[in-house]
Amino acid sequence: MSLLSVQSLTAHYGDMQALYGVDFGIDAGQVAAVIGPNGAGKTTLMRAMLGAGARTAGRIEFAGQPILGLPPEAIAALGIAMVPEGRRLFASLSVEENLRMGESAGRKGVWTLARVFDLFPILKERRHRPATALSGGQQQMVAVGRALMTNPKILLCDELSLGLSPLVVEDIYALFPAILAEGMALVIVEQDVGRALKVATSVTCLMEGRVVLQGAPGDLSVDRIAQAYFGAAA
């Protein structure tokens, strides 16, 4: 049984359907990459796992418990956290206060303020600055740290590298082993397919709300992914 499994998930925004029967699963210690062009439904899928966003139907099970329909705060308390696209830091809170908001989930674990500061020493230095006064990369560290502070079993990362310089992205991805070492599962949504394939243990490619390709990165050739992307195989 997977840690998290999604079965025949559909999602609607008003009259517009965003997902058509998506299946997806992940186990502890794995990194699942969700790739696909803009508008394929990647973010919708992620937000559905958090109980947010579109109107959804189907089945989502987390550690054997159905969670579809639970409010986001209940899902957060069960152990799913997200690093949202665009970071969405709290503008009137300092760096430290932003991180401490992760304590709201009420989950004790290895990730404490001190541990996050070990991971991102620069944040400790700037802990009293307003979070939005930091550079883009540092803000992304706050967003990751804030999600880690909820001590999740699954961490969802939406477009981590968006708007960041390649060097900064490199730094952030370099932290993955330290995060995975704690037995966490990671779901990453990435535009940068090459980067996603490098770290992922499984890849799901979405196109127009449907899964068009799923498997281990070793089994999927770049050609097949390109075909899935550009629809040549269909």
């Binding site: 958090l50 947010a52 409010p71 986001p72 705060e73 957060a76 308390a77 956290a81 997200m82 949202p84 969405r88 709290f90 503008a91 009137s92 809170l93 206060e97 932003n98 908001m101 992760g102 709201s104 989930a105 009420g106 989950r107 804030r146 999600a147 909820t150």
Partner: peptide
């Protein structure tokens, strides 16, 4: 303050 800034993100943090 966090909820006033962005209630949706606050909920997702629990």
């Amino acid at each position: 303050r966090a909820t006033a800034d962005d209630a949706e993100t606050a909920r997702q943090l629990g």
